[in-house]
Simulated scan of single mutants.
Amino acid sequence: MPALLDIQNIHKAFGGNVVLQGASLNVMPGEIVGLLGPNGSGKSTLLNVASGFTRADSGEVRFEGQDISRLPAHRIVHHGMARTFQLPSMPSKMSVLEVTLAADTRLHGVWSTLLKPSAVREAEAEALQQANQLLDSLLLTPVKQLAASAISGGQKKLLSIACALMARPKLLMLDEPTAGVHPNLRRDIVQTLQRLRAQGISQLIVEHDMHFVREVCTRCIVLDRGQIVADCKPEELSSHPQVIEAYLGRAAAQAAQMKAA
């Protein structure tokens, strides 16, 4: 089975700061892949490269077999890949429902054409129905008329997922979806991601919470200093020497190997 997302040999530096050094990974249809690594290992940069927000110095990104390495972010969304950000910033003068509707890229096309008013109204009605369904499934209906900037941090994370889903993606990429989230909302996010996978939406998730990773992910990829050092099942993380070294240092990894022997 061909990969849904195939990232090969990505290099990226910002001035003299080398962030990615030949990073390669793939996401297969139906997978939830966790992208892990210490702070500064290059996780968010790799997500930015894959989603078109940062141009790699070299390497290739393919989605469903098509090279998207040089496409801008909005074109990549049209191909079927959407993402969220670690710290979602929400407008203060738009409601939760309005922000969700604004994320529907199909409406942008409708509004910029000379379609009949009836066709525009039909498209808007379909978008409104989808937005309301998403907000309901993400438990945001009670706050949908509030200013998007006024809801809690966890609710903003859920809203950012709703916005990404308005594009009907085949692959959803999330940057630390549970960071700073109340435990009750964290459970809601876990259930949402599991439900999305059941609906056929693959996922690539940057996350530090190992309990969350074991709950949600089917496979894990670990970055350290811009390089992939592990590709394994979640249950193998705690005994993987390269993962232990990445997080705790070489001495800890050697001690773990001696203990295992």
Score class of each variant (00 low, 15 high):
I161A: 02
L185M: 15
I161T: 08
R168W: 03
P169F: 09
H108P: 00
L172N: 02
L185S: 06
A127M: 10
V229F: 04
L115H: 06
I228H: 08
L223E: 06
Q155C: 08
T178S: 10
P177C: 05
K116R: 11
E126L: 12
L165N: 12
L193Q: 05
D188P: 00
P142G: 05
L159S: 03
I205W: 11
T178G: 00
A198T: 08
V181T: 12
I189Q: 00
T178Q: 02
Q133P: 00
Q199V: 01
P177L: 03
L204P: 03
L115T: 08
K170Y: 09
D104Q: 11
L158R: 10
H182D: 14
A127S: 14
K156P: 00
N132K: 12
E207G: 02
A162S: 09
Q133C: 01
I161V: 15
D209I: 11
S112W: 02
A131M: 07
R186V: 01
H208F: 11
I205N: 03
I205Q: 00
A131W: 01
L193D: 00
S152H: 08
V110T: 13
A131C: 07
Q227Y: 06
V190T: 11
C220G: 08
S118W: 11
Q194N: 13
P142C: 10
H182F: 05
H108A: 09
T113D: 14
N132V: 02
A167V: 03
A123F: 09
D209E: 05
R106S: 13
Q155V: 08
T192Q: 05
L158N: 00
G153F: 01
K116C: 07
L171N: 03
L196F: 13
H108K: 14
T218E: 10
L165V: 07
V120K: 12
Q194C: 04
A230N: 11
I189D: 02
T113G: 13
R187G: 06
R197Y: 01
I228M: 13
D209Y: 12
V222R: 08
H182Q: 15
L146M: 14
A103I: 09
T141C: 03
I205M: 09
M210S: 05
T105F: 10
P169W: 06
R121I: 06
H182K: 11
V216K: 01
M166E: 07
S160L: 07
R225S: 12
R214C: 13
A230Q: 14
L134H: 04
T113N: 13
N184K: 14
Q130Y: 09
R214K: 15
S160D: 15
Q227K: 15
I201L: 05
S152A: 13
H182T: 03
